[in-house]
């Protein structure tokens, strides 16, 4: 347990290291917003790391830039738009909902719909089959009765 805790702390220290002390803003509220934004911004060098935890030079520049824009009074969205303008939607880990990403956002729903449709068909068909096994409908009983009667007559005719 002790080892696990110390391991966790060591790992956390690694994450905290990327944001260097001289970058941190005096205003804790702005700093929190900056951290929140930088967690969702991709480092363009390392690609799968957010700039918040990246040690790359460009990541540091972008962190400082985000803080500068926040201090200048930009809203979170304005800061994000500024970055997207330079680096494209690619820079955001959470892709926005626009013409280029309709397929990305809607495909799961479409697949779910298709799956649901397929499942509904299969289940309704299975239920139909189950009903049929449970017994014969009135029409079917009538047909069977008629057939039995005719069969019986045939036999009588032959026997006779």
């Amino acid at each position: 347990m002790k080892h696990l805790l110390s391991l966790i702390f060591v790992l956390l220290a690694g994450i905290a290291l990327a944001v260097e002390p001289d970058e941190i803003l005096d205003d804790p509220e702005l700093e929190a917003r900056a951290r929140a934004i930088s967690k969702d911004v991709r480092c363009v060098v390392c690609q799968n790391e957010p700039i918040d935890s990246s040690n790359a030079g460009v990541a540091r520049d972008l962190r400082i830039l985000i803080r500068e824009r926040l201090v200048a009074g930009d809203s979170d969205d304005e800061v994000r738009d500024f970055l997207v303008e330079k680096y494209g939607d690619y820079v955001l880990f959470k892709p926005p909902f626009n013409a280029k990403t309709y397929a990305l956002w809607l495909a799961p729903l479409a697949l779910l719909g298709l799956g649901g449709l397929a499942a509904a068909t299969v289940f309704s068909r299975r239920r139909g089959a189950a009903d049929a096994q449970a017994g014969l409908s009135d029409e079917e009983e009538a047909i069977v009765a008629e057939l039995m009667q005719r069969f019986g007559q045939d036999r009588q005719d032959k026997d006779g």
């Binding site: 363009v44 060098v45 030079g57 460009v58 520049d61 972008l62 830039l65 330079k86 680096y87 494209g88």
Partner: peptide
Amino acid sequence: ETGRAGIEWGISG
């Protein structure tokens, strides 16, 4: 020197 123009150009390195 600051890399700011590089960001304007969207360079990654």
